[in-house]
């Protein structure tokens, strides 16, 4: 029990350090980026007088030294105030709150899709190494992993929404419909294309790794022995293969959460999906420090949680690691 507590505390400390570190780096990057927040706010070439520009800078505290600005932000954060977004003119917590759920749904679905499809494709093509199917999967994975998400998104949009008309052209709800009338089915319908787009890049990574792993496993002595006992290929994979490739697949799947977050920025923009990703790009383009910091913290927590779950799952799935933990 004591051990568990210790571990929990050390995890917590690491998380806090990570949050502080990331917020500092993000802050530094934003303030040294060549974006003038006043320009972004009033429009680059508006006829707003220099006097009013000074007023704006003072109002938003843009003239204070960076260190002071950072610590003001930090001390407000500790009090639970994440500041006000310059570009949306709303409290950051409000923006994050309204967008987090949308992003979470999108990413969760995409994450599941990429995990399942990737794993299945990987196992199958690994088992049938050298076959036409394997070659096709491999080629597809190489193409997909080298394709940018937004391009896939545009392609899907053209094909499925414009040409075939199966899916809506964007948004998370039907055009012009009051929210009280929007059904769950409609929400799901709007989620499919962005989620599928987002899962695409994840699929190739998981599939290629799983494929390689299963090929390795199939070369093992115990597999040879099992073959000798007369086990068929698929029984063999089920009994010896899946279990051995589960751990790397799970690690990879949880590690891909960070990539997922990156991908969501692009996918959400293409599909006008109102999540954190589209807010992040807006904040970045407008030099909106409080909002960008808020989103950065959110994503850190997200990725950190992903890695933590992967660590915990190791222990559950693999007794060797669990034992190791006890010894240490």
């Amino acid at each position: 029990m004591n051990q568990l507590l210790k571990q929990a505390i050390s995890t917590l400390i690491r998380m806090v350090l990570l949050l502080v570190g990331v917020s500092m780096v993000t802050f530094l990057l934003v303030i040294s980026s060549p974006i003038d927040p006043i320009d972004a706010y009033v429009g680059a070439e508006s006829n707003v007088s220099q006097e009013q520009r000074d007023n704006i800078a003072e109002y938003w505290g843009l003239n204070n030294p960076p260190v002071e600005r950072y610590f003001t932000w930090l001390s407000n954060l500790i009090k639970g105030d994440m500041g006000t977004s310059i570009s949306y003119q709303k409290p950051v917590t409000e923006i994050l709150g309204s967008r987090f759920l949308a992003s979470l749904t999108l990413m969760a679905v995409a994450w599941l899709l990429s995990g399942i499809f990737g794993f299945l494709l990987g196992v199958m093509s690994g088992a049938m190494q050298g076959s036409i199917f394997d070659k096709c999967v491999k080629a597809l994975c190489f193409v997909l992993s080298s394709t940018p998400t937004f391009w896939i998104g545009l392609l899907f949009l053209m094909l499925f929404s414009v040409v075939l008309g199966w899916f809506p052209i964007g948004l998370s709800v039907p055009i012009g419909k009051l929210s009280s009338e929007v059904t769950l089915l409609e929400r799901v319908h709007h989620l499919i294309l962005p989620a599928f787009t987002l899962s695409i890049t994840g699929i190739s990574g998981i599939a290629l790794h799983t494929r390689q792993k299963i090929i390795d496993v199939l070369k093992m002595d115990y597999v040879l022995f099992a073959k000798a006992r007369g086990e068929s290929k698929w029984t063999l994979i089920r009994r010896h293969g899946l279990r051995n490739i589960a751990i790397p697949a799970i690690t990879l799947q949880f590690a891909s959460i960070s990539e997922l977050f990156g991908g969501s920025v692009l996918a959400e923009n293409v599909f006008s999906y109102p999540g954190l990703g589209s807010a992040a790009s807006a904040a970045g383009l407008k030099g909106d420090v409080p909002l960008l910091l808020g989103i950065a913290l959110c994503s850190v927590l997200f990725v950190f949680a992903g890695n933590l779950i992967a660590n915990l799952l190791y222990g559950i799935l693999n007794p060797q690691i669990r034992e190791g933990g006890k010894l240490g």
Binding site: I116, G165, W166, I192
Partner: peptide
């Protein structure tokens, strides 16, 4: 879990193809 999620999604997409397609034209 994963399988049910998969079939669930597939099922929905199939349903929607039939029910929602005419909507864009009429809106």
């Amino acid at each position: 879990l994963s399988l049910s999620a998969l079939t669930g999604c597939m099922g929905n997409s199939n349903n929607n193809e039939e029910t929602v397609t005419p909507a864009p034209e009429s809106s």
